[in-house]
Design a protein around this nucleic acid. Structure first.
Lengths: 207, 207
DNA sequence: AAAAAATTTTTATTGCGTAAAAAATTTTTC
DNA sequence: GAAAAATTTTTTACGCAATAAAAATTTTTT
């Protein structure tokens, strides 16, 4: 009943991911074969499939690791910087965009996003979604701070609002990565239009 | 200089799509091979690739056709039904969900969505996005009507607002199709929370 | 009607993903 | 500590997507 088997599994997992990181960085996921990852990791190709399902699954697992970094960065850089909701949302979006673009190029992010939807119910699809959720929670906490200052209406649910703004940000992010020529300045401007229009949509007598 | 060549191309396009529709309906896209579509359409497998790029490309083209129906339905069913923004947005979302779910099951929609992101810059990715845009424009027009009634603030851009609400709806739709067990009632409730929190987020003195 | 141009088909190759049998390794049992 | 049992990996084999290049076909032009 010792954990030797478990230990070896964890080790293989790690080796596969490390091999993938190295080869993806060198040539990109498209030009990297599962077989090459397997060789580099010292396992068979089928084992890579057994562990991660698909090549996208490997990529998703890699992104999930980087997202943990992003989460730390977010928890460190976001709090206490904004005194209004629009500014908060824009900073939140900017941190995500910056992290994303320094880590992978847009073409690969399109694959990642596509995989996160196509494999939404797989193990790694789920862990990806869970990190998204935690990211949204950082935003929720800051919204609670703004509520305490009176910058956000105290009647609304900070959780619901955080999730909604996260959604809006997420679609903007998809838009950003969908077009190679779109700059982060443009994306920020578009996000600002989203926020201004929706936050100011209702006239005072209708709220 | 007659258009025989063009005519034959259009004809092949049509036959391929018709064959795909028939076979996808019978067995689903996964169990349908490109070769089978090609046989049914009376062309070679490579020709299907030449015309639509990938199997997802064929699927996307099929969905684009159905989206034209949806667009008509939307233009017919949405206008004049709502006298406030939240109700309008929910009707809009409901029409899309209903149409989607009667047309394809969730698993296939996940593939469609993934393909629309992964192939955002392909011919069919673009036509898919253009239909999304037209759909959003129907919403924009109704928002303008609400502005005329005073139900929506006249200072905001109806276009920006329509796009923002469309984004919110789109993320909810992704969420809806990502989980097989999620009902349309639940999705509507979640969308309502999105809308209520974000539309009521700013206190009166901050707008 | 022949030559030129465009398009499809044939042919071949690579790689993903899956399944089942075989081999190896760890764990359990005596 | 060796044999048996259980688990996991590897080997082997196969179907299909996607791509490339050559060959064949068909339309267009002259």
């Amino acid at each position: 009943m010792s954990g030797l088997r478990e230990k070896q599994k964890a080790d293989r997992r790690r080796r596969i991911l490390e091999a993938a990181r190295k080869l993806f960085a060198k040539a990109g996921p498209d030009a990297t074969t599962i077989e090459a990852i397997a060789d580099e990791a010292g396992v068979s190709g089928v084992t890579v499939h057994n562990y991660y399902g698909t090549k996208s699954g490997v990529l998703l697992a890699l992104v999930a690791e980087s997202d943990r970094e992003l989460l730390e960065k977010m928890a460190h850089d976001l709090p206490g910087q904004s005194d209004d909701l629009i500014d908060l949302a824009r900073r939140f979006a900017a941190i995500i965009r910056d992290h994303a673009i320094t880590f992978l190029d847009k073409g690969i992010w399109r694959q990642v996003f596509a995989a996160s939807i196509a494999e939404a119910d797989s193990r790694f699809g789920k862990s990806y979604h869970s990190l998204d959720h935690q990211l949204a929670l950082v935003l929720v906490r800051e919204i609670e701070v703004l509520q305490a200052c009176g910058a956000v209406a105290s009647e609304v649910s900070a959780y619901d609002l955080g999730k909604a703004i996260f959604s809006l940000q997420n679609m903007r992010f998809v838009n950003f990565i969908s077009f190679d020529e779109m700059t982060d300045v443009e994306s920020d401007a578009a996000f600002l239009r989203d926020l201004r229009s929706i936050l100011g949509a209702l006239p005072a007598n209708r709220r």
